[in-house]
Nucleic acid binder design. Structure first.
Length: 817
RNA sequence: GCGAGAGUGGCGGAACCGGUAGACGCGCCGGACUUAGGAUCCGGUGGCCGAGAGGCCGUGGGAGUUCGAGUCUCCCCUCUCGCACCA
């Protein structure tokens, strides 16, 4: 009698058994002979219960971890929570509860949900970044960066979110608005802590060549973010004062086309020069305006806006004197804060020139063509031949860039230069829920690091954590007052906390040495597990988290703590789970939650829905894939058929397997193995469905199917761990878990078909098909092809001029037309 | 504007090297079992013509290469994502 599929009867039962057996513990034994595999998922923020995005991402990551386990690897598959940060803090403020209480309550709920979903985590390594024993080492790492000059404090114009009342890193500003709350970001000049990631710009770029298993678009996004430009730095001289102002250009071949010169409004020379020339009255309002303008408005700034500075710049290549301007379209943050303007070949310069009636001089023309500068309506693409360019007339451009740059250097008028768009990472936050920065400010000793043996600098309880422009820690009555660790005098703690992205930049190291009291991790443990075998998570971290983690790893490499420079050689991004083309959100009221599905149909169903919906990296539109709410999902029905098939196969017992089933068994093992190696979960599942159908057909015809049933159950295990376990232990009678069984093997010879469909075409159109032996030769194929009915009809009265034979698959007769 | 990717049945999606387009599943149609079906089982299901055998058309549009193109090349259209005064 075959069993009905009733997941409620066994799913939770196996959870307890797995816990007791310690099934998913990574081995601590250094002598364990197995190869190791580190399956890492991007750890979640503890905001609310798990949502559909988690369900999909972690289902995929879990398949990888379980598959590797079945292949005989010693697998490290850890879990933790990125539990500090604005996200948790804002939610706590909104609800009026302590961030700690809210955060840890969510963590409890999320871990219960993860467990219920059957994730194969090694819970013994669980971590939370807001635990003192974790952030102690976040602080320790900060101090090592500080010692190396990679953490520093400076006054700088920064992005300020008026709603969250804190500064943001450049990477957290999206289209001029706060990444978290969408409020337009303001500009403020503040003293803040930075990590010197710019020192690593070139290495972050170079090492990307090794990331061949990253999605192409993520690599591209990082490359664009780092934004390397090659060009030249050229020094112009102010005619009136003789002072030298360097500019950066990627097109030194257009130097002869310079007709004016522009300073950024905040350029340090501007005020002095304006006062000298008597134009300060005109310049000052522009400066005020820019200082008050939020970054959003700044981005929309008009290219035509700007005023004459009243002084002149001397072009070093030809001694020409051109007027200087001050304009908001030139940014202080990039290059040198001043530019040479070449209106003929740069659109922004062109627009400015037309608005201010400045000359436009063409210096690069298409060969044999003459263009009238007065008639131009936009800047020209600068590819062609250099003209009116002194010694370089007739040189092809842009090929001449290198020549011109070399010439500039030899003449002492410039030098080749490289610029990056990447800025240093602003890590301090004026918020409560984060790791305190372990620095003491002493009136006599300056910035003094908190000694290692006094770490962690604990976050105080009972703080008014409402944001108010300065850090809540600064408002605590006693916390900040300490003796200077250096001189013992009265001093104050730094009251800022660290950006959460600092916490998440090294958590994957901690998993290797959980709870180590002597350091952030033991190098030998990291050596054992890392680099990560497979990293799974969302594209939303394509820049921030991944770039910072790569930076941290390189610094740790330089410190001699790790032996590799890239933490995640293989990265996999899951798609989003959306609804009717739009992201799920409370305001739209279109949220579908995973746990009710787990409760109603079982965890295996929830996992299979996600994995079978389509390629892992593609978005899933819930509206399009979901069955009616009360209707049994298709994958659940399939599990029912698997139960019936396995039960029947057991009942049939040791009866010979039909040859067709045997071949399909081998072919399926081969195919599913290959699909799993390429994360093609959807096609792997479809192959298992085909095998299920064939097992049932084989049983129907009186054959045995035990072998096939066993293989099916084992291959089902990564996708539907509960159903597989129930079938393996109860129906198939194994004393041990399917999850520690050995992945079934296949015989390549048996995996191939013994008969093949010979397709016969006439002029490329299919006219006949025949089942033929797989080893049929050309002559045999031709013979069968010629004899086929449909072919003879199609060939009637036509002359065959060519016969294409690809035995045993295809014959194509080409006739005279 | 720049960069990347994608367009295949009613739907999600298959199709490794160019070689049977539409695997697998959802939905739908018909049937069986049923008091019932949101359960289960069997059959059908790209479009058009045809009683049938069979034929014609068909992978966003257009050209090309080839015996043969969803797949390769060129042009165009549409959509998605990322970046966006970066000198």
């Amino acid at each position: 009698m075959t069993r009905r599929y009733e997941p409620a009867e066994f799913e939770t039962r196996w959870l307890d058994v797995w816990d007791e057996e310690g099934l998913y513990r990574a081995s601590e034994d250094p002598a364990d002979p197995r190869e190791r595999f580190y399956a890492l998922d991007m750890f979640p923020y503890p905001s609310g219960d798990l949502h559909m995005g988690h369900a999909e991402a972690f289902s995929g990551g879990d398949v990888v971890a379980r598959f590797k386990m079945l292949q005989g690897y010693d697998v490290l598959h850890p879990i933790g929570w990125d539990s500090f940060g604005l996200n948790a803090e804002n939610a706590a403020i909104k609800r009026g509860v302590d961030p700690k209480i809210w955060t840890y309550a969510n963590i409890d709920q999320q871990s219960a949900s993860f467990r219920r979903m059957g994730m194969s985590f090694d819970w013994s390594r669980r971590l939370q970044t807001s635990d003192p024993e974790y952030y102690r080492w976040t602080q320790w790492l900060f101090l090592r960066f500080f010692e190396r000059g990679l953490a520093y404090r400076k006054n700088a114009p920064v992005n300020w979110c008026p709603k969250d009342q804190t500064v943001l890193a450049n990477e957290q500003v999206i289209n001029g608005a706060c990444e978290r709350c969408g409020t337009p970001v303001e500009r403020r000049d503040l003293t803040q802590w930075f990590y010197k990631i710019t020192d690593y710009a070139q290495r972050l770029l170079d090492d990307m060549d090794a990331l061949t298993d990253w999605p192409e678009r993520v690599v591209t996004m990082q490359r664009n973010w780092i934004g390397r430009s090659e060009g030249a730095e050229v020094t112009f001289t102010i005619q009136e004062t003789g002072e030298e102002i360097p500019i950066f250009t990627t097109r030194p071949d257009t130097l002869w086309g310079v007709t004016f010169f522009v300073f950024a409004v905040e350029h340090p020379a501007v005020r002095r020069l304006a006062e000298l020339a008597g134009t300060w009255d005109a310049v000052a309002p522009l400066l005020d305006k820019v200082r008050q303008t939020s970054l959003v408005d700044r981005e929309a700034a008009d290219t035509k806006e700007g005023v004459a500075l009243g002084v002149h710049a001397v072009n070093p290549v030809n001694g020409e004197v051109v007027p200087c301007f001050v304009a908001p379209y030139v940014l202080m943050e990039y290059g040198t804060g001043a530019i040479m303007a070449v209106p003929a070949h740069d659109q922004r310069d062109f627009e400015f020139a037309r608005a201010h009636e400045l000359p436009v001089r063409i210096v690069i023309e298409p060969p044999g063509e003459h263009v009238d500068a007065d008639a131009m309506t936009e800047a020209m693409a600068h590819e062609g031949v250099m003209v009116a360019s002194g010694p370089f007339d007739g040189e092809p451009s842009p090929a001449s860039i290198a020549t011109v740059t070399a010439w500039l250097a030899s003449q002492g008028r410039g030098a080749s230069a490289v610029r990056y768009r990447l800025r240093d990472w602003l890590l301090s936050r004026q918020r409560y829920w984060g790791a305190p920065i372990p620095i003491v400010h002493c009136p006599s000793c300056g910035q003094v690091p908190v000694p290692d043996d006094q770490l962690p600098v604990l976050l105080p309880d009972e703080v008014d954590f409402q944001p108010g422009g300065e850090s809540p820690l600064a408002r605590h009555p006693t916390w900040k007052f300490v003796a200077c660790p250096n001189c013992g005098g009265e001093a104050e703690r730094d009251t800022d906390t660290m950006d959460t992205f600092v916490d998440s930049s090294w958590y994957y190291f901690r998993y290797c040495s959980p709870g180590d009291p002597d350091g952030p991790f033991r190098p030998e443990d990291v050596e054992k597990w890392m680099p990560v075998g497979q990293y799974t998570g969302g594209v939303e971290h394509a820049i921030l988290h991944l770039l910072y983690s790569r930076f941290f790893t390189k610094v740790l490499y330089d410190m001699g703590m790790v032996t590799f420079v890239e933490p995640f050689p293989r990265l996999m991004n899951q798609g989003q789970v959306i609804y009717d083309g739009a992201s799920m959100s409370k305001t739209k009221g279109n949220i579908v939650e995973p746990m009710p599905i787990v409760e109603r149909w079982g965890a295996d169903t929830m996992r299979l829905i996600m994995l079978f919906a389509g390629p892992f990296e593609d978005d899933i539109d819930w509206k399009l894939i979901a069955s009616a709410p009360d209707r049994r999902p298709g994958v659940t029905s399939w599990l029912g058929r698997v139960f019936a098939a396995v039960g029947d196969a057991v009942e049939r017992g040791e009866v010979a397997e039909p040859p067709a089933l045997e071949r399909l068994r081998h072919r399926t093992i081969k195919g599913v193995t290959e699909d799993l190696e390429r994360f093609r979960f959807n096609t792997a599942i479809s192959k298992l469905m085909v095998l299920t159908n064939e097992i049932r057909a084989g049983l129907e015809s009186g054959g045995g199917a035990l072998e096939a049933a066993r293989a099916l159950v084992q291959m089902l295990a990564p996708f539907a761990p509960f159903a597989a376990e129930e079938l393996w232990r109860v129906e198939l009678g194994s004393p041990t878990s399917v999850h520690v069984s050995r992945w079934p093997s296949f015989d390549a010879a048996k995996a191939s078909e013994d008969t093949i469909t010979l397709v016969v075409q006439v002029d490329g159109k299919v006219r006949s098909k025949a089942e033929v032996p797989a080893d049929l030769d050309e002559a045999g194929a031709l013979e069968i092809a010629r004899a086929a009915d449909g072919v003879r009809r199609a060939l009637d009265g036509r002359e065959v001029v060519k016969e294409i034979v690809r035995a045993p698959k295809l014959v194509n007769f080409v006739t005279r037309r």
